[in-house]
């Protein structure tokens, strides 16, 4: 017999897995460096947040659950910053963003 909390946490973890999958597919399929960063920067942030929240709910409201939430908050701050750092380095390095053919004219 599964409790309500377990079902909710299972849903959260499944959501996290879904966004992990789409972020990975985006990372493989998108045409250039900057568009790939769109996938990892947004997708991984929410995916990690959801999966960790699900695991914290499964753990229950204890000190361990709070620690998992701390990791989630840390990722929430750090992931966009890391994305910004890499993309900035790429732009300064001289990578040209990919454009559609009709936009180049």
């Amino acid at each position: 017999m599964m409790s309500v909390m377990t079902i909710v946490s299972v849903l959260f973890i499944l959501g996290g897995l879904f966004f992990f999958t789409t972020a990975t597919i985006g990372l493989i399929r998108f045409p250039d460096f900057f568009t790939r960063l769109h996938a990892t920067g947004k997708g991984d942030t929410l995916a990690v947040f959801l999966s960790l929240l699900g695991l914290a709910l499964y753990e229950g409201f204890s000190l361990t659950g709070l620690k998992i939430v701390i990791i989630a908050i840390f990722m929430f701050i750090a992931q966009p910053t890391a994305t910004h750092a890499i993309s900035k380095a790429g732009l300064r390095f001289g990578l040209k963003p990919w454009m559609r053919e009709e936009d180049r004219k």
Binding site: T22, F30, D32, T35, A39, R100, D103
Partner: peptide
């Protein structure tokens, strides 16, 4: 995230970055 998921899964990938 749903936007990224839509773009990543759609076959034609309707993006025009700027």
């Amino acid at each position: 995230n749903f936007h990224v998921a839509y773009l990543a899964l759609s076959p034609k990938m309707p993006i025009s970055p700027k």
